[in-house]
Nucleic acid binder design. Structure first.
Lengths: 213, 213
DNA sequence: TAGATTGTTAATCGATTAACAATC
DNA sequence: TAGATTGTTAATCGATTAACAATC
């Protein structure tokens, strides 16, 4: 970023991805524009918050009309980096790993899983959803061949840190971590945690709070 | 909650679940206590933040020593509701649903998946990881029989709202939503989104920001 | 005791919300 | 035009961080 540019706040980024889902769902309808008021109503946010978010990514709307849906969708995608072509590899082809391999990433997320790796030889040598699963030992050679952007970690927690270091030393720029453990990596790599237990904690705590109310 | 009690902030809850993972990992070591300073160092937080978080859940430490690990773990679990016995059902036995069914929830999350349901008859009639998968039509009868606390939604986005409403009208108190869509439910139900694309957005955006820096 | 770590009180920072003039 | 919705500027709210006395 430029000198004093700030990182976009995480809550804004999360909401932007929600706007995106809403807009994609609207695609089959024949409406061309949408106001922040309407978006807010559909997602149960406040209109001013939606306007602020869209302002942040540089969008300009028309009073009384709102925003052009096509333009809005594109702007969000490009802000989130979903128009680029991220080459990802997945490590850990267990149950979760397999589910991730089968996910339809090809529609609009700018990410493509090009290969998977597993420490267990019984899991390698196959192809899942068109993606080859190799033994972990084949990774360095694979990484040397082509550019890789994202590493998806879906191994048991105990193995995650080691995997992260291997990925880091092979030029990966981002790690999407599904193992419930904190990864320490050197600075220029983006790490985002996506393990289930964080959102589970949120749910179970909110349920307690609800009952106390 | 009591009159003016506030909900615990989401970031605190997320960090608490991280502390929990750290402490569980420490179990096999024979250390008995840990200081907020040490926790902070291991997770790359600031010590003051850790202390504030632990203070929020009512823990008292000893100067120069820190907190008793066993006590700390218990306190976090009970604050997060992980010591209770939540009965959950899962709707949508696709790839992600199956991965969730196979996840080892039995160690320390206070949640148990007692049954799964799917709209596709080809997916029902089986047992996954000891959990029976029924056809969706069997749900009302099943729900009438026993107490259910949590509904896990892992169906395609287009079907999610309908499923949520069915769950809501069958006494569920919390929804863990893996479908990339916003669910509208009546007030007393806790809904937490856990779909992949939110964290993916965070990752891909951070990667862009990293490059610009 | 000395020093590390705690809990408390106050200051800062950042995100959300409110108010309102501008505009299509 | 009238009214809905925008963008802007200011106020509020809440979370994080800092400073420091208390304590084991």
């Amino acid at each position: 970023m430029k000198k004093n540019a700030r990182k976009a706040p995480a809550p804004v980024i999360r909401r932007l991805s929600n706007y995106h889902h809403l807009l994609v769902g609207l695609k089959q309808s024949n409406r061309k524009t949408i106001s922040s008021t309407t978006i807010a109503e559909m997602l149960e946010y406040k209109p001013i918050q939606v306007r602020k978010d869209l302002q942040l990514i540089g969008l300009v709307g028309r009073p009384k009309v709102g925003f052009r849906i096509a333009e809005l969708t594109e702007a969000i995608q490009s802000f989130l980096g979903w128009k680029s072509n991220c080459r990802a590899i997945l490590v850990g082809a267990g149950n979760l790993g397999k589910a991730l391999l089968k996910y339809p990433w090809d529609d609009g997320y700018g990410i493509e899983i090009v290969a998977a790796f597993d420490a267990d030889k019984k899991r390698s040598g196959v192809t899942i959803n068109g993606i080859p699963v190799y033994h972990q030992s084949a990774f360095p050679a694979f990484a040397a061949k082509d550019r890789l952007d994202v590493g998806i970690i879906a191994v048991p927690a105990a193995a995650a840190q080691t995997v992260a270091e291997v990925l880091a030393s092979n030029g990966i720029r981002g790690i999407w971590n599904f193992s419930p453990t904190h990864l320490k990596v050197s600075a220029p790599i983006a790490v985002v945690d996506a393990f289930f237990t964080q959102s589970l904690a949120l749910l179970t705590r909110r349920m307690i709070e609800g009952r106390e109310e």
